[in-house]
């Protein structure tokens, strides 16, 4: 069976991976500095550290960037090595679910009931 190429897409995802890489490159050192300067020792300390809303929003955005970046990267790897369509779709789906699930979990942690309880 011949394989059809020519979807006229690809630049978007390629660009997305570059853009998210830039976001990560800029945000990661800043966050690392923020955490390292006041490394908490207990749960309360951590809670206090995450109290500002802007930080939680930034964390979530960064995680979203990471997820998108990882998605493009994983997709590329599967496109390289996983040639049977069913296998590739399954793997793609698994990555999407894992990443989306992780994001949702993070959102729950950052904005969930723990905060209202505090």
């Amino acid at each position: 069976m011949k394989s059809a190429t020519g979807s006229h897409t690809g630049t978007g995802t390629w660009l997305l991976q570059r853009a998210t890489a830039v976001v990560l490159a800029l945000a990661l050192p800043g966050l690392a500095m923020y955490f390292l300067t006041a490394l908490p020792v207990d749960f309360a300390g951590w809670q206090a550290l995450f109290a500002p809303l802007w930080l939680r929003v930034l964390m979530l955005l960064m995680a979203a960037a990471l997820a998108l970046h990882a998605w493009v990267g994983m997709r590329d790897i599967f496109m390289d090595y996983a040639h049977p369509t069913v296998l590739r779709l399954t793997l793609h789906l698994a990555v999407i679910l894992t990443l989306a699930g992780s994001l949702a979990w993070l959102a729950a942690i950052l904005f969930g009931t723990a905060w209202s309880a505090a």
Binding site: G6, S7, H8, G10, T11, T13, D76, M79
Partner: peptide
């Protein structure tokens, strides 16, 4: 450019 814009044809280059 249309001919090349494709996740496989061009963007396999890493």
């Amino acid at each position: 450019l249309d001919n090349l814009e494709d996740p496989y044809r061009l963007y396999r280059c890493r």
